[in-house]
Structures are given as structure tokens and as C-alpha cells.
Design a binder for these strands. Structure first.
Length: 464
RNA sequence: GUCCCUAUCGUCUAGCCUGGCCCAGGACACCGGCCUUUCACGCCGGCGACGGGGGUUCGAAUCCCCCUGGGGACGCCA
């Protein structure tokens, strides 16, 4: 048992996106690998944007991906007493101060700083003031002004910044609520987090948080900043690059193991290996082979992995998922052919569950009409003898095993003197309504005697 | 603009720490062929990269410096 404690701390202002999911995954994997503890914390200090729906959406997505946590979820909105006492402590120690500058004044100062070619930092106007005006105020943390702040990142190595580049962060708003950069320090420390794994966009925050750990007498945890995920244009991944919500991929027919496998390989590698189950990952994952630079999200590769997992997935499980999709489309599979058999005929030809459902539809719903071009070519009057012969031989067998079906067609070929290429396409159109389907023998075997015969009779009646 | 980070095929990456086994390996995508009752699968083959410039060294993708490109941060958001 290790004493590794990691956490995932999303802010509930939307669904769980690709980037957040990867961060959560890395945390989860390391916790499981090391026998550590995975804490889930909801960072909802932004009252305006945080919603319960978002919390639910995030929880649901994590569950879908299989990322179970050991402690939490803890809500920061329920821990304000703790934060307030810590702000008071800093104020008491003289390590924080009240700032009466208004947002307008600050904005003006930022503009000026930017124009004169500098960094838009707070100038410390209120840092040493001694009066106590009767006016709204925020509390700022006194960031050291001299020297250097640095930390060792488990992925990027040493990162250091001159303190003169930093300014005094607001840790408590005018309304008395604490801000992110403060609560994240308090919580990571109070929850005894030993390793903070988070997005690379927090590197600058981390530098500024280090002095706060010291000021509050906390032990500074280890950090690992994972690189960002970008879109094809190398811009930060966003909606315009396509779906960024993890759950949107479930809707599109993706399997969670494909998503997990894709996510972990974006920025992490293990030699030449591409396929990893969750168990493989728990055994093999390590921060040591996480890359340092941002990566581009590649939907094609995700699709390929999904294809792989569909191909190798358990037909019974896949069948259940496909049945759900079909049910959503009003197709009841209860009285249709055996779903597991149906799935087996489709596993090699579907890239997503949605595609599989589309391909499976005809098994449960007899064609009401035939594809125009297909019918013209394969359901013409001159096929009458062929259909009658086919019906005859298929009526002759009771057990529609693959072998029996194949033998029946062999007989049709014998009697008609035709090659399969002259028979199959017509039967296919009669059975499925179009020209695309799994192998005819499979289709016939899975559909079974009653459905096959009835569909052939119907086609026979429609020859023209 | 300032600061931080980063840099191998179009993309994800191996190799870099511990220079020579690398005229750079794998995967996705793409192109060609084979298989074939349709669509797919599968199999075989191909295209394709060490950003540029200086060093160090007998020798550099690997070490050092500069430039350039890319990303991030600069909020009473997280």
C-alpha cells in the first residue's frame, strides 16, 4: 500500500471534455498502479457558472469510462468555513492584505501596463496601506517580491520564474468568497494530496501557489503537468474541431475502452504498443513516458481503436448496446433473430455501434420496399425461376445452420447451373432490401427459416 | 507585448538522459495490389520526418548556444 494520493478536480461548468477526461484517467491509472487513493473534488467556487447538471454529467462520464474514485466527491462550496479561517490566518500573520482598488481601476492599470510593453500585473497599491476605508475590498496574498519561485515538475522538469514577474493574487472576492488559486492550495494540502496531476495550462498558477503553501505552513505536493490537447489546426481543442464531450462519443457509438485507449496514447507511449486494456494500463502506465509537448486530437485514430474494440468485443455485450440504440429508433428486437448471432455477422464491418445498429436493422424489420436500382437489376421478372428454385431448396431444410444453408445454395447452383454471383445478389436484395449486407449464408442462417421464406415469397410476388 | 513551456513522417509516437546498433522504427490516415457473392475485414507493398543556423566530437536525431515555429499564462474563471 502506497501513500500516494492524487485527485481530479473539475469545475462543473459544463460536460466532461476530452482533455479533462485524460487528466482524470492519468490520475486514476497512477492511483491504481501504486495502490494509492484517488480523490474527486468538485471546484464550484464560481457560483455563477457551476451547475448540478454539470456535476452529474461529469460523474456520469467518469463512470462510463470506468474511472472510479476512492474519496469524494467533495464540494468546495461546502468548505467555505475552512477557507475563511485560512484567509483570516494569513491576514493575521500579515501575509495577506485588503485591497480596495475597484475592478475599473485595475482594468485601467492593466491597459497601461500592456501598452508600455510590460506584463499586466497588479502594482501593489494597497499592499502597504494602513487605513481601513469603509468600502468593498478583496483580499490579496502577499507574493514574495524578490528571488525566484520554482518547482520540480514530474513531467517537465524544473520550472522557475522570477518573483518580480508575479503579482499579489486575489484570494477572496468582494463578496467574501474565496478564489480558485487559494482554495486549490488549501484543499490539496488539507486532503493530503501528494501528487497533483493537472493540465499544462496550470503551470503558471503552480508557481504562484508554491508561496501560499509555505505561508500556510503546508507541505508542498509533487506536481505533474500534462500537455494540452489541440485541434487539427494546432489551436486549443474546442467545439469547432468537432465533438469534445466524452459523452458525445458514446452517443456516436463509441466504446469506453476505445476512448480510454485513445486518450492514454495521446501523450503517453509504451514502446510500439498501441492496444491497451485498462488492466494493461494499470500495470504499465507511468509518468516517465508521458510526453512534454502538446498533442493534436486525431478522430481517425480514435475511430480505428473503436473499430478494433468492436471487432474483438464480446458479442453478448455488444448486442445489448446495439439493442439499446435500435430501441431508441423504435425497433424492438425482442422477437427478432438472436442478437448475439446478429452481432457476430457485423463485427468486422462496423466502426461504431451506431453503424452496427444501422447494419442490424434489417434483421428485425423486413424490407418494406426495395432499393430502386437494386430491384431493377436483381428483382426482374427473369429471376422468377431462380427464386422458385431457391425457395424450394430452403424450404427443404429445417435447421438453418451455416452448413445446411450453404448446402442448400449449392443445390440451387447445381439445379440452375448458375454461379453464386448470379444468385446471391438477388437473394440479398430480397432479404435486406439493398445491395449491402453481411455474407448471404450468414444472413440466411441468422434470419432463420420463417423470415427467409416469407421475405423470399414477398420478393417473388413483386418481380416485374 | 511580457513571462513560462515546447519542437522526430500530415497526426500520435519510439529513439534522445547513458552520442556510433538510425541514410531514423511502429501506429492512424493516404496510395497501390491480393482475397472476394455485395459492403467490409484481412494480407502484402508504397509514400512520408530528425524546423534552421552555429558549435563540441573521429562521429549528433541524440550534448551546448542562437534563431524560428507552436502552445500556455497574464481574470474579483477555473
Amino acid at each position: 500500500m502506497s501513500n500516494l494520493r492524487v485527485r481530479f478536480a473539475p469545475s462543473p461548468t459544463g460536460y466532461l471534455h476530452i482533455g479533462g477526461a485524460r487528466t482524470a484517467l492519468f490520475n486514476y491509472l497512477l492511483a491504481r498502479k501504486e495502490g494509492g487513493t484517488f480523490v474527486l473534488r468538485i471546484e464550484d467556487t464560481d457560483v455563477e457558472r457551476s451547475t448540478q447538471e454539470s456535476v452529474d454529467a461529469i460523474l456520469q462520464a467518469m463512470e462510463w469510462l470506468g474511472l472510479g474514485y476512492d474519496e469524494g466527491p467533495f464540494y468546495q462550496s461546502e468548505r467555505y468555513d475552512l477557507y475563511k479561517s485560512k484567509v483570516a490566518e494569513l491576514l493575521g500573520k500579515g501575509l495577506a492584505y485588503k485591497c480596495y482598488c475597484t475592478p475599473e481601476e485595475l482594468e485601467a492599470k492593466r491597459q497601461i501596463a500592456m501598452q508600455s510593453g510590460g506584463k499586466p500585473r497588479y502594482d501593489g497599491t494597497c499592499r502597504n496601506r494602513t487605513d481601513q476605508p469603509d468600502a468593498p475590498f478583496v483580499v490579496r496574498f502577499k507574493t514574495p517580491q524578490d528571488g525566484t519561485s520554482s518547482f520540480h515538475d514530474r513531467i517537465k522538469g524544473v520550472i522557475s520564474v522570477e518573483n518580480s514577474e508575479l503579482d499579489d493574487l486575489i484570494i477572496q472576492r468582494t463578496d467574501g468568497n474565496p478564489t480558485y488559486n487559494f482554495v486549490v492550495v488549501v484543499d490539496d494540502a488539507e486532503m493530503a494530496i501528494t501528487l497533483v496531476i493537472r493540465g499544462d495550462d496550470h503551470v503558471n498558477n503552480t508557481v504562484r501557489q508554491i508561496p501560499m503553501y509555505h505561508a500556510l505552513g503546508y507541505k508542498v505536493p509533487d506536481f505533474a503537468h500534462v500537455p494540452m490537447i489541440l485541434g487539427a489546426d494546432k489551436k486549443r481543442l474546442s467545439k469547432r474541431h468537432g465533438a469534445t464531450s466524452v459523452m458525445a462519443y458514446r452517443e456516436m457509438g463509441y466504446l469506453p475502452e476505445a476512448m480510454v485507449n485513445y486518450l492514454v496514447r495521446l501523450g503517453w507511449s509504451f514502446g510500439d504498443e498501441e492496444i491497451f486494456s485498462m488492466d494493461d494500463l494499470i500495470e504499465k502506465f507511468s509518468l516517465d513516458n508521458v510526453g512534454r509537448s502538446a498533442g493534436v486530437f486525431n478522430p481517425d485514430k480514435l475511430l480505428w481503436l473503436n473499430e478494433h474494440y468492436i471487432k474483438t468485443g464480446d458479442p453478448l455485450r455488444l448486442g445489448g448496446l446495439v439493442a439499446e440504440i435500435l430501441a431508441g429508433q423504435g425497433v424492438d428486437v425482442t422477437f427478432g433473430p438472436d442478437m448475439t448471432s446478429v452481432v457476430k455477422t457485423l463485427q468486422d464491418r462496423a466502426k461504431t455501434l451506431v453503424e452496427m445498429a444501422d447494419g442490424a436493422r434489417f434483421y428485425f424489420v423486413a424490407p418494406e420496399s426495395y432499393d430502386e436500382q437494386a430491384a431493377a437489376k436483381f428483382l426482374s421478372e427473369d429471376k422468377r425461376d431462380l427464386f422458385e428454385l431457391t425457395v424450394k431448396h430452403l424450404e427443404a431444410i429445417d435447421d438453418y445452420s451455416h452448413d445446411n444453408v450453404e448446402n442448400a445454395f449449392q443445390a440451387v447452383m447445381q439445379d440452375s447451373g448458375l454461379k453464386f454471383g448470379k444468385i446471391g445478389p438477388s437473394v440479398r436484395v430480397a432479404l435486406v432490401g439493398g445491395t449491402v449486407s453481411p455474407s448471404i449464408y450468414d444472413v440466411v442462417a441468422v434470419l432463420g427459416r420463417d423470415r427467409v421464406l416469407s421475405r423470399l415469397q414477398k420478393a417473388l410476388a413483386s418481380l416485374r
